[in-house]
Design a protein around this nucleic acid. Structure first.
Lengths: 120, 120
DNA sequence: GTATTATATGAACAGATAAACATATGAAAG
DNA sequence: CTTTCATATGTTTATCTGTTCATATAATAC
């Protein structure tokens, strides 16, 4: 410890000064990192992951999603709202039936990256 | 509703029978989806995202991570354990100092995919 | 040995969150 | 207009999770 001194703030750090400078420069805004965490938080629930997964194949209505996953309609509806707010799914109304589908292929890519990490 | 009948379970579903069959076939084990959610849950916290982010540039010791992010040593240590348990970071001991670094480039890829989704 | 430094760990508390239940909206059918 | 069906929403509750505080380990210096 106290191997190097960060002149700017007066803090003593173990890392070299230019390393510290680089890290600080590359660091995005706090708000951005918060949003990023929020996004991953949406994927961080098995119910929502399951919902996204059944939508891989095709669009489905709320009732079918609930039936396929053995969940209550209310639970699915609540989670679909979270997914919708985060632009991970979109919907299409046909009378009283609402069909949900994946918003874009980012969803697939993010999940695939996650799967690759697990399968090692 | 009740447009189609799922013969197997006797449930009435809106989607066509072969769609339902496909969805069910493609569906991974519950345990796998649970693990996947667990992984994303790790990314779903701004403190952990910040820690991963400062490690993008270079390996850092616990104290420096805490200083750079304005966090307590304890909080960082706790979160590093979570990251370590999920194989997102690895560490190297040098005397009493422990240097942490990103485990592999999956971390970078997953975060980048997330960033792409936000930046639209 | 004791003191100090770096990190880890355990327990407790506060805030977040997913599910369940009841209820509301909104569209079609009668 | 009333009923029924599909979905949405508000509220409560139980559980989970991140932080803090106190303490433990583990290595170095004295």
């Amino acid at each position: 410890m106290t191997e190097d001194k960060n002149v700017e703030s007066g803090e003593y750090l173990c890392a070299h000064e230019d390393t510290v400078k680089k890290v600080k420069e590359e660091m995005p805004e706090d708000e951005f990192l918060y949003d990023l965490a929020e996004l991953f938080k949406v994927f961080g629930d098995s119910t929502r992951i399951k919902i996204l997964y059944v939508l891989f194949e095709s669009e489905l209505c709320v009732y079918d999603i609930a039936q396929l996953l053995g969940l209550t309609q209310t639970a699915v509806s609540h989670q679909l709202r979270v997914l919708k707010n985060n632009k991970l799914v979109r919907f299409r109304k046909e009378g009283k039936i609402v069909f949900y589908s994946l918003a874009d292929d980012h969803v697939t890519r993010i999940i695939n990256q996650g799967m690759e990490h697990i399968c090692e």
